[in-house]
Structure formats: structure tokens, C-alpha cells
Write a protein that binds this DNA or RNA. Structure first.
Lengths: 154, 154
DNA sequence: GAAACTAGTCACGATGCTTGACTATCAAGG
DNA sequence: CCTTGATAGTCAAGCATCGTGACTAGTTTC
């Protein structure tokens, strides 16, 4: 992501922010009894619910390939965060179900992110932070939409 | 980066935005005669000037390790974007100097990013976009500062 | 001039994404 | 039924990126 040094470009800024957020999240998770979850595991853990979710749905929601989801689930199974259960409605499919340990990680991850957001809210002020959050969501949506509109043209 | 689906967390949002920006930048660069630059090359190209910059300075500015900068420069040399020239002031050091081709890439990358920002500015409105940009910069800075303050404690 | 430091490189390993192919199962039409 | 095509999940190989430790050559400090 290229930029001049007079004012860092959007790509640099968002990249740095993402790395900083990720670092804090996973360092804190490690301190709270989850030292072995890594960033990529979020693609699975973040979208689970108690009934279980199929791997293909996870792939669709995160935009990642089925294979990656598969290996992530393998790791999470061996770490004791999730189980694979047969899907009663489709014998090809399996439901990814969080274990107790997995549910604990999910709750803690959400709490940590909420804490980070609260700290940023205090720093920026409630109004500015709310505006920032809304704008970020809008910008992301527009940028993704613009990208997809070009895909068709190609 | 974990999240619930009710409202995407900051990590997810920034990650998606970064990917979308990166995709547009490098697709457009490819169409404009630079099909072989990749995102990581930005760490070097974005911070060059005509006189040349030392690898260690690039590492410090981008937060990446010297070794990574070294391999990126290797690639950019073989692609014809930069040259290594001896630093007259320090015989250990070399200055990374952009070639004509490199200067062209730098100019085009900046133009593309400016175009993206202008489009977002039209979408959000001038005031909201300015506020967003400022808040993003502040949030990133605070988040990074917080991280570093914890490093000392460890 | 000797010791401590700095610039850049080499080598290795960990992590993460992409791609293609394959088996088992489901779904739709004849 | 049963054939044809799509879908769920897995196996496997390859590429890209980043992190860490060690090393050489040159510089700075005392």
C-alpha cells in the first residue's frame, strides 16, 4: 500500500490498525487461558453458534476457501475448541459445534473487543467514535461494492 | 478477529477495508503498466524519494524487519523498479533509489489512492470523510501506543 | 587501537492463502 | 428408478509472507 509520508494513506492506516487490534486481542486471550488460538481461527470461532454451523457457510461468510476452513477446524478440534457433528439433514455435511472451551473463548474475545472499543470511545469522545464507526462501516461497504461492480466488467 | 454478526467488530471491518483498498490499487496498477508489483512492495516504494533511502530507515518507518525490506528490494531490483547505490556517507550502507519505472509506479499509485479517497469523499460528504480520516489516524495512533505501553510491562 | 554498535545479508522455520483434484452425497429430469 | 449435474468436505502440493537468530563488514566511542 503506497503512500507519501506527509499523510499516511488509507491502506497503510487500516493495515496498521488491524495489526494493532489483532495483537491486543490475541495477547489478551493468551493471558486469559487461550494461548493457542491464532488470528485465522477467528474466521471459524467468530461465526459459531451453539447449534453448529456448516463449513461451507463459514467459508461463504468469511470469504475464505473451504480448504482453509477445513484446516482451521482441524486445528480447533485438536485444541479442544470445537467438535464435528454429523448434520442430520444432510449426510454429506457436518456441523461445527463449539465446546465449553470454545464458548469460553468466544465470550472472552467479544469482551476484549468491547473493552478496546470502549477505550477508543473514551479517547475520541462518544460522538466522534460513533461517527467513526458508522463511517468505517459505510466506507468498507462502498469500497467492497465498487470492487464487485468491476468484477462483472472484466 | 472474532465478532458477532449483529454488528461487525472493528478488526473485521478494518481487515475488509484494507483488502478492498489493496485489491483496487493493485488491479488498477496492473492495468496501468505495473502488473508485477505486489502489496508488500509498497513498504519500500511508498517511502522512496529521488535521492534514495537506506534500508534501515525503510524498516523503521514501515515497522518491518530489515530482512523483509532486503528481500523486497531484491525483488524490486530484478523487476527494474529500484537500484542499490552505495551511500557516500557510510560504506556499510546502500541507498535504495527509484528508477524511471519506479518513479512512474509511485506516481500512479498515489494518483489511484487519491482517486479512491475522492470517491469516498463524494460518498460520505466532505465533512464526514475528513472527520473519518482524522479519527482513523487518531484511533490507529492510540491503539499502537497502547500496545507499546504494554510491551514495557511484560 | 579495542570494544561496542550499526548496516545489510544469509538461512531456516512458521504461518497463511491458492489451486486442482477426488469421494460421498444430494437433487432434478427423463 | 436412474442418470446427470451440482454440492459438502477432504487430500495434496505449491507459493507468498513474516519472524528469528546468526553472521560479515564497516563505524563510532572511549
Amino acid at each position: 500500500m503506497d503512500t507519501a509520508q506527509h499523510h499516511p494513506d488509507l491502506g497503510m492506516l487500516t493495515g496498521q490498525l488491524m495489526r494493532a487490534l489483532q495483537n491486543e486481542l490475541f495477547e489478551t486471550l493468551a493471558e486469559q487461558g487461550h494461548p493457542d488460538v491464532r488470528p485465522r481461527h477467528g474466521s471459524v470461532l467468530a461465526f459459531l453458534d451453539a447449534e453448529g454451523v456448516r463449513a461451507t457457510d463459514l467459508a461463504a461468510r468469511t470469504g475464505q476457501h473451504k480448504q482453509i476452513i477445513g484446516t482451521i477446524v482441524d486445528e480447533l478440534v485438536s485444541l479442544g475448541y470445537v467438535r464435528r457433528e454429523p448434520d442430520p439433514a444432510d449426510r454429506r455435511a457436518k456441523r461445527i459445534v463449539p465446546t465449553e472451551h470454545g464458548l469460553d473463548e468466544i465470550a472472552k474475545a467479544r469482551a476484549i473487543l468491547a473493552t478496546i472499543e470502549q477505550r477508543l470511545e473514551r479517547t475520541l469522545g462518544e460522538q466522534r467514535f460513533a461517527a467513526f464507526r458508522e463511517a468505517l462501516q459505510e466506507v468498507t461497504g462502498h469500497q467492497q461494492a465498487w470492487r464487485e461492480s468491476r468484477q462483472v466488467v472484466d
